[in-house]
């Protein structure tokens, strides 16, 4: 049988719960950055400046084709060589936010392109500006078709937060690892971390489906 120790479980639980909070915070903050920055990237690629569109396109491609772990290291360890000294948290949020912004920008682009051309023409016929057209007509219609992708990446960013453990962000895996090294016992902390991830991911996926349906109805689709 396993050598599972319940009293050890209760002993380490408070630390793991704090770490859960950190994981959720990292995922939430990273996602908030990604959602906004992703939209900026998507719009920049469709904007009037060819040069900007090209630069952003290449940046997005570059970030999407290199590992997140490398980007995390890069921001944290290479930054200081250029005099940019950032805390683990700040570096982590920049790296993960930027990484997921690139994925989300592709989701938005797909959503925006799925809006029929006639919607642009009707907006022009009402003499709306480009910004008004995006804000009032195009983006509200791009949201429903973007929701699935956005939801998947929310769960994705949550599961990728352990990448930040390598630069010392005290999220779940980092904490479990620390507990394990202190007590020479890894079974309980790592198992618990797995269960915590599962306990959050599964309901979150369900909630996202519900939210999708709600937003679609709300927008009259």
């Amino acid at each position: 049988m396993f050598d599972w120790k319940w009293d050890f479980v209760w002993e380490i639980m408070p630390r793991l719960l704090v770490a859960t909070g950190n994981t959720l915070l990292a995922a939430g903050a990273g996602y908030a950055i990604a959602i906004v920055l992703g939209l900026v990237f998507a719009l920049a690629q469709r904007g009037p400046s060819r040069l900007l569109a090209f630069v952003v396109r290449e940046l997005v491609e570059f970030i999407r084709s290199t590992p997140l772990l490398l980007q995390v290291f890069f921001v944290f360890f290479v930054g200081p060589q250029f005099g940019i000294r950032l805390s683990p948290w700040t570096s982590g949020m920049i790296a993960i936010g930027l990484h997921y912004a690139c994925y989300l920008s592709e989701v938005y682009r797909g959503g925006i392109e799925s809006v029929p051309r006639g919607q642009w023409e009707a907006s022009t016929a009402l003499n709306m500006s480009t910004i008004q057209t995006y804000r009032r007509v195009i983006i509200p219609q791009a949201i429903p078709s973007s929701l699935t992708g956005m939801g998947n990446y929310l769960v994705g960013i949550f599961k990728d937060t352990p990448m930040l453990s390598v630069i010392g962000v005290a999220e779940l895996v980092h904490t479990a690892n620390a507990i394990g090294s202190e007590h020479y016992r890894f079974l309980e902390p790592l198992t618990l971390v797995g269960l915590i991830f599962l306990a959050i991911s599964l309901p979150a996926a369900g909630l996202i489906r519900l939210l999708e349906g709600y937003v679609r109805r709300k927008l009259g689709m």
Binding site: P116, G118, Q119, E121, A122, A125, L126, N127, M128, Q132, R136, V137, P140, Q141, L219, G220, M221
Partner: peptide, 25 residues
């Protein structure tokens, strides 16, 4: 202009469709 395929804004009601231009523009 009115179009062959109407091109109403699907996320707005009939009244909201009509009010969009006067209010926003």
């Amino acid at each position: 202009m009115c179009f062959q395929h109407f091109n109403l804004f699907p996320h707005m009601t009939a009244l909201e469709n009509c009010m969009e231009g006067p209010v926003q523009v």
